[in-house]
């Protein structure tokens, strides 16, 4: 009886955690789907779309999507090699003390708010190095944000490989490079890929740090160089949300949000299933 009651109460308490995501997604679909018409994507003829709303031009939402993807891809391609190098250093060369120091430092930096990294980027890259509001500044700031997460994930993935396996490979006289390629890579690639996809999802959803460092509201279709500003989905939604009184603008914001969430959820779902398979294999 008491068991029943306590279990029931717990389920009731837990309900929000399980129901809220479904409600959020459902509401997002409800508001966002109607706006996904041809003018949103800039597929209608040039004259018409100019007439209907000042928000959409002949390119529709594509510059924003491209900007987000570009930022995310650049950030991850900066962070991933660094994360791999750091975790290999941790596994191959670091002593026990510096190993744990490294993990603590990374965990602490992981918890520092993205906004502060954004401030750092604003001071150092935008003003000190005179890059201006640029793709490069935003990408490096995002890379700094995901670097601790990626590195910790990689370290954990490498730590899960049994030491007996590594030891027997070493006692066969295999070099560090050979062990990494022939013993560690087959064991860890799934977890590494999981981490990478989570990092992509993370970089796609961070808004505050790139607000001052990389993006402008409009006027950019495709960045000319690394040092020119971009537009991105997440900041686009932010600017639109601030104008929330106008129903038409709000509808545009919902549709953009739907696109963004689709992108992000896609990557985190892939990561989820990769991760599940890797834990099945253990």
């Amino acid at each position: 009886m008491i068991n029943r009651a306590s279990k029931f109460a717990l389920c009731l308490l837990a309900l929000p955690a399980l129901v809220v995501p479904i409600l959020c997604l459902a509401y997002l679909l409800m508001r966002g789907l109607p706006g996904l018409d041809s003018s949103f994507f800039g597929l209608s003829t040039l004259g018409q779309s100019r007439d209907t709303t000042s928000l959409s031009n002949q390119h529709g939402i594509f510059p924003q999507i491209m900007g987000s993807v570009l930022l995310s891809a650049l950030a991850c391609s900066i962070a991933m090699p660094l994360a791999l190098g750091l975790s290999l250093h941790n596994q191959l060369y670091a002593g026990r003390r510096s190993q744990s120091l490294m993990v603590h430092v990374l965990t602490t930096f992981q918890s520092i708010p993205p906004l502060v990294y954004g401030l750092c980027g604003l001071v150092v890259f935008v003003h000190l190095l005179q890059w201006g509001i640029s793709l490069a500044a935003g990408a490096i700031v995002l890379a700094m944000i995901v670097l601790p997460v990626l590195t910790l994930n990689t370290i954990h993935a490498l730590e899960r490989i049994p030491t007996a396996l590594t030891d027997s490979a070493r006692s066969l006289g295999m070099s560090a490079g050979q062990i990494i390629w022939h013993v560690w890579r087959p064991k860890a690639w799934r977890s590494l890929l999981t981490g990478l996809f989570l990092a992509i999802a993370r970089t796609l959803s961070e808004t505050a740090p790139i607000l001052f460092t990389a993006t402008v509201f409009s006027g950019v279709i495709w960045p000319d160089s690394l040092l020119s500003p971009v537009t991105s989905l997440q900041t686009h939604i932010f600017y639109l949300a601030q104008e929330a009184v106008d129903e038409r603008i709000l509808a545009h914001a919902w549709s953009s949000a739907l696109i963004l969430v689709t992108l992000v959820v896609m990557f985190s779902v892939i990561a989820h299933f990769l991760n599940r398979h890797s834990s099945d294999n253990e």
């Binding site: 049994p162 007996a164 396996l165 030891d167 027997s168 490979a169 070493r170 006692s171 066969l172 006289g173 295999m174 070099s175 022939h182 013993v183 087959p186």
Partner: peptide
């Protein structure tokens, strides 16, 4: 050191085979 370890074979207490075929295991080193 890698060449030294090739010169001196060490076999551990717990049998540790790599997740591949028997042939590949023999020529793993």
């Amino acid at each position: 050191a890698d060449a030294l370890r090739q010169h001196i074979g060490l076999i551990g207490q717990k049998p540790t085979v790599f997740p591949c075929s028997i042939t590949d295991n023999v020529v793993f080193g």
